[in-house]
């Protein structure tokens, strides 16, 4: 295991009114690893994601992303800067594609910041300079690479909203990869997939980990995915971490079993 973690979450607390959605949570995720966050419904997994990606600001705690250039404190950045500067990509539980734009356009929009620089804030593009068309060509190449990777190349010119559910999920992952993330956060990527699609997803995710060397953070209910591909599992319940370990350890953990199946003595009583 590499000595420095990629993501370091320390004492993060997020309250909504009196409800502690995430309560004093600390864990780390390492580069080139898939870290799964699991837990019963309402355990605070998505809230945690929203804290990491800046959509919520935690009341307490620090979230650090370790880049080569040094640490970046995510809780201090705006959500769009977390994607732009810290390079954390994410997908959403309820898929959020640009439904009335084409599949390819979805991936081009994801490269907005790079293309904006190349087009000198669109000026070069307005004047029709070669500099921009070259940049757009590179952007298209990247999009093509990822479309090929997720098996959607033949659908590149279709409206994203017209794709079947499983394809939309894969497209969302491809889109997030187009920002060149260091950390990719996936919110239930296997939800609603059939077993075959689920298997393909496993291949895709391990491929991203092994070939692109980035860290993945994964919320998932599908245990075949979690146990099959995770290197590390963090278990949440009621906003707190109740266990962390490799898949084998988690499978045997008493606290985890209790959280999922209920207190045995309660059931008897």
């Amino acid at each position: 295991m590499s000595p420095t973690p990629l993501l370091q979450v320390e004492h993060v607390t997020m309250r909504f009114g009196g409800l502690f959605a995430v309560n004093d949570l600390s864990f780390t995720a390492r580069p080139r690893q898939i870290t799964a966050i699991i837990g019963p419904n309402g355990a605070g997994k998505t809230t945690l994601f929203n804290c990491i990606t800046g959509f919520y600001k935690p009341q307490v705690g620090r979230i650090t992303l370790h880049q080569d250039q040094g640490p970046v404190y995510l809780e201090r950045l705006d959500d769009f800067d977390i994607a732009k500067k810290a390079r954390v990509g994410r997908t959403f539980q309820n898929i959020r594609l640009f439904a009335r734009m084409s599949v390819l356009e979805n991936l081009i929009v994801a490269q907005h910041n790079a293309l904006m620089r190349a087009s000198v804030f669109s000026l070069a593009g307005l004047l029709g300079l070669a500099r921009y068309s070259k940049a757009e060509k590179l952007g298209t190449d990247k999009a093509r690479y990822w479309l090929n990777k997720v098996g959607l190349l033949h659908l590149a010119d279709e409206d994203a909203g017209s794709l079947p559910y499983g394809s939309q999920r894969r497209l969302e992952i491809a889109r997030a990869m187009c920002i060149d993330p260091l950390l990719l956060c996936l919110d239930e990527p296997a939800a609603g997939l059939n077993p075959r699609e689920s298997q393909e997803l496993n291949t895709l995710l391990t491929g991203i980990r092994d070939e692109h060397g980035i860290g993945l953070l994964l919320i998932e209910h599908d245990m075949s995915v979690v146990m099959g591909i995770s290197d590390w599992v963090v278990v949440l319940d009621y906003g707190r971490k109740i266990a962390a370990g490799n898949p084998a350890e988690i499978r045997a953990d008493e606290a985890v079993i209790r959280a999922y199946l209920g207190e045995p003595d309660e059931a008897e009583a």
Binding site: K84, F92, F98, A99, R100, E105, V109, H112, F121, A176
Partner: peptide, 26 residues
Amino acid sequence: IRRLPIGRAWEALREDEIACRSLGLN
């Protein structure tokens, strides 16, 4: 401009602002 990053960003914003933010668009 519809074929330039800024124009595509306008349309993306119309479609889903939250997704835009998650991709680094201000």
